[in-house]
Computed example of a mutant assay.
Amino acid sequence: MKNSFKISALIVAFAGLAFSAKAQTTTTTTTTTSTTTPGGIRYSIGVDAGIPTGNFKNGYKWNIGGSLQADIPVASQLFVTVNAGYNNIFGKKDVAGTGVNVPNVQLLPVKAGLKYFVIPNFYVQGEAGAAFLLNKSDFYNDKSTAFVYAPQIGVQFPVSASSFIDAGVRYEATTKYSSNFDGSKVNFVGIRVAYGF
C-alpha cells in the first residue's frame, strides 16, 4: 500500500512537470530532427536490456525491460526528460555449485533528467530518480526504494516525418536496498532502443 502511494505520487508529479513544461513552451523547432509534436514534445517507447557490473554481477546474469519517455524542449537542443519503466534482472541458478538460486530483481525506475544534442542526432543524457523494488519480500532488504542515476549517450534519427528511432547506451546504478549490505546495490550497463513519435 505504501509503495503504491509512492509510485502514484511520483507519476502524478512527473505528469505535472510534463504538462507545466508543455504549457510554457511554444512550438519549438530544433536542429536535430523535425520529429516533434506541435508542442515540441517527443514521446518514445523502448526496450531496455543490460548486463550487471561490479559485485552485482556475482549473483545476476542480465536484465530486460521496457520504458516510456517524454522529451520536453526547454532550449535549443536541450530537453527535460521524464522516464518510467520496468526492469527484470535475472538471478543466477545454482551459484558456484552450492544449489542456491538467486531470486530475480524486479524494479520500477522513475527518473527525470536532461538530454542535450551535442551535434545533430547525437546526444548526452543524465537522469536521476527513484527505483522501486517490487519484490522486496524475496530478499532481506530493509528498503523498497533506492536512489537511481543513469548517464547515457545515444543517437536519434528520423524514420519518417513524424517518427524516429532513439538508441542509447547507459550506466545505471542505485543506492543500497539494505542498509547493512553493499551487495544490495543494483548496477548495470544497458541499452535502450526506442520508437519515438
Rank of each mutant, 00 (worst) to 15 (best):
N83D: 15
A84C: 14
Y116E: 14
P158T: 06
Q152F: 06
V95K: 10
I45M: 14
G66P: 09
G66E: 06
V155F: 01
Q69A: 13
V159I: 15
T53M: 07
F164D: 01
G54A: 03
L108C: 08
L68N: 13
A96K: 10
S162C: 02
V105W: 01
V148L: 11
A70S: 10
P52G: 05
G66N: 12
S160P: 11
G91D: 03
K143V: 04
F164N: 14
G85R: 12
I89G: 03
S144E: 02
N88R: 06
F147A: 06
P52Y: 11
A128E: 00
I45Y: 14
V102I: 15
A75K: 14
I119N: 07
A161P: 05
A131K: 06
N87F: 10
G97L: 12
Q125V: 00
N55P: 01
A131C: 09
L133S: 05
A49T: 05
Y123G: 03
V118R: 04
A161S: 05
L68M: 15
S44M: 10
V74K: 06
Q69V: 10
Q152C: 10
N101D: 15
V100I: 15
F79A: 07
G154K: 07
V47D: 04
N104D: 15
P52A: 00
Q152V: 12
E127K: 08
V148N: 08
Y123P: 09
Q156T: 15
V155H: 01
F90S: 09
S67H: 08
L78F: 07
L133F: 01
I89N: 03
N104H: 08
P120M: 11
S162D: 07
F139A: 00
V118L: 12
N87K: 11
Q152A: 14
L78A: 14
D94M: 14
G66R: 05
Q77M: 13
T81L: 13
S160N: 11
Y123K: 04
K115Y: 13
A131P: 02
F56D: 01
D71G: 08
K136H: 01
L114D: 11
N121I: 04
I72D: 13
N101Q: 14
S163D: 14
A96N: 15
A75Q: 13
K93M: 05
F56W: 06
A84K: 02
N87P: 04
G85A: 02
Q156D: 12
K111F: 06
A112N: 06
F117P: 05
K57P: 09
T145I: 04
T98Q: 13
T53K: 09
T98P: 15
L108R: 02
S163M: 14
A146M: 10
S44Y: 10
V110E: 12
S76E: 15
F139P: 01
N135P: 11
N58H: 05
G59D: 06
E127L: 08
G113K: 08
G129Y: 09
G91F: 04
A96M: 14
L107A: 10
T145A: 04
I119T: 11
